[in-house]
Design a binder for these strands. Structure first.
Lengths: 358, 358
DNA sequence: TTGTACGCGTTATCAA
DNA sequence: TTGATAACGCGTACAA
């Protein structure tokens, strides 16, 4: 103690710095700070009597070890950074839950940021996380513009796992849904049922999953020898309302589609609404058969859909768990000399024809 | 520089500690660490020339300031702790998004933990967050057992806001939905329509919102002079399936209810399923009128319900925003002498009679 | 078994 | 305007 024993404005050890420290606990227990540290780390070589005194002091003072200072010294923050494009989307909520579950099992916490599909925001979040010395990152990339912020150099060597979407030019561990196969199976189902005019409703073309799902859709057509009908392909609907509008337009065509493949749950919901409304208006008169829907992703109450519906189902929590597991495998392999090449995992999907069985 | 210029095991400045430090940047720019710190904090009083040198060095080294060490010295972590009972529930996902939005606006990050409705886990999470020196906490309490871990003493003075549920014996800022009024209005609607045998489907009695919603339900009955029918009250369904079973039982009664109030979206979904199935089985024969449903909470695709439905709607994101705003108001008022008493805010609900207008 | 000395990376304070 | 010094709270290494 050299200087600054008392601040001139009189705040000191009352509400000043707030939390108590090892020093305080040590003083209260009549031991050195080191002994306190040992007790808190569950060390073996402490006399039971001292241990009890320390534990009593901890309880008495309501002491919480400063994990911040601790991680500074130990060189591991116990933190995993997670950026998601939209947490409010139930799918990504499940993803986050999966990540959190695995992180908790490894005694880590997650820092979560919403990128809002905005690459600039994503860059800020990742930069901040790196500054906070997260031990690893799980990113659902917004996937537009250059991804320099996801390059190893920008990450300062922090391991990265991409979830749900890949990014061109970024060589990182990646966990995806088997989008191509799911879309392929969905389209094949419709083609087998005899449909030849099948509409496609999907995301913006720039969205990775959107591209892949369209690829599967097209592939199924090629194999069946049925051409994809250009005027029935609508890409760019990011929310339920625009999907509904797109479907309504399609239904109003002179030669409307007899079936539709919707490439995500936003578009499925929009399509169902449009079809249900059209149905209601025709009130069974026209005699035209109801438009058939097969959609990617599942959603609550799907089994009560007023429209004939099949779904390509997959597990968001599992996606999150896998991503987190891959990250921790990287962390554990960090000491080794030979670094593994980035891995790509594609999780299986399940085509549910009868949605009541979801 | 006294000692420790080189570790005996030869790892040093190669891949050793990994990230570069202010020291490195200072050396590279030929200035003192303090000048680097000033530049990074956007300080005014630095010669442009030096500033440029520093900025170049930062870029060159890919330097990220260590927010951990920084917060140790500055005594503010820039972190807000959030515990939620179940992130996978879309409602709480929205809540989290609201919190994150406000936190981001205040340049804070959120640490998120899933308590899984488990008080023990909640206690661990809160303890860890306090140890990480979060500046504040937003908790959706699991609300069973004693809540000693939410007492000011256990929190070491960290401000707390309870969201969605209150906790007996905990005097903290709280943001709730106006559960009582919502349930009251829902029940009143049904009573006005002439129903006198109204079922109630709700949460476990121990869940705070469940109690409040039952209170509103009962109050409406009292005012209308209609008794609550005991055999039609089912509390304890925590998921869709058990809710469906409960509703199925009610429909099988000799004198089944003509309407049901469901106290949350799990129960609403279950009730709708049960009614839809019963409907289908009778296939319009019996001539009995369809059971009317009014539910608390909204959900996707509600407008396509096969059963006549009204809902008590409210905004999860707004709840999250309000909770976070209250927290930051506390933080800003932290310096002042007089501490405000804990505040209770109840957010309004909206009775949507025609669900197509949601 | 226990304690002492020092360093982790940063910034507040004060002196130049 | 810039730099030296100390301190934030903790853990490691080593000495007692």
């Amino acid at each position: 103690m050299t200087a600054g024993a008392d601040a001139p404005d009189g705040r000191r050890r009352t509400r000043g710095s707030g939390a108590s420290t090892v020093q305080d606990v040590a003083a209260e227990a009549g031991v050195s700070p080191m002994t306190v540290s040992r007790v808190l780390s569950g060390a073996q070589h402490v006399r039971p009597e001292l241990r009890e005194r320390v534990e009593a002091a901890v309880l008495h003072l309501g002491y919480h070890r400063d994990e911040n200072a601790r991680s500074l010294r130990r060189r591991r923050s116990g933190l995993i950074g997670v950026t998601i494009t939209n947490i409010a989307n139930p799918y990504y909520a499940g993803l986050q839950r999966g990540i959190e579950e695995v992180a908790a099992r490894h005694e880590r916490r997650i820092l979560v940021g919403n990128s809002n599909e905005d690459p600039v925001r994503e860059r800020q979040l990742v930069g901040d996380f790196v500054g906070r010395r997260v031990e690893g990152l799980v990113v659902v990339p917004s996937g537009q513009g250059p991804a320099t912020h996801l390059q190893p150099k920008a990450l300062g060597g922090v391991p990265l796992v991409l979830a749900s979407r890949a990014v061109e030019g970024v060589d990182a561990d990646t966990v995806l849904i088997d989008d191509v196969r799911g879309a392929y199976e969905a389209a094949t189902l419709l083609l087998r049922e005899g449909h030849t005019r099948i509409a496609f409703l999907g995301n913006r073309v720039s969205v990775f999953t959107g591209q892949r799902r369209f690829a599967g859709f097209r592939q199924a057509h090629e194999e069946a020898g049925v051409p994809v009908v250009g005027e029935l392909v609508r890409q760019g609907q990011q929310d339920v309302d625009s999907a509904r509008e797109a479907m309504t337009e399609l239904l109003a065509l002179d030669d409307p589609p007899t079936a539709v493949f919707t490439a995500n749950n936003r578009n499925t919901l929009g399509a169902i609404r449009a079809i249900a409304v059209a149905e209601r208006d025709r009130s069974g008169a026209g005699g035209r058969r109801q438009t058939r829907v097969v959609g990617f992703d599942s959603f609550e109450l799907a089994d009560l859909s007023p429209v004939a519906l099949s779904l390509v189902d997959h597990d968001a929590e599992e996606l999150g768990r896998q991503a987190a597991e891959m990250l921790f495998e990287r962390l554990e392999a960090a000491g080794e000399d030979e670094q593994q090449a980035p891995r790509l995992v594609e999780l299986p999907v399940r085509l549910v024809e009868d949605v009541a069985r979801l």
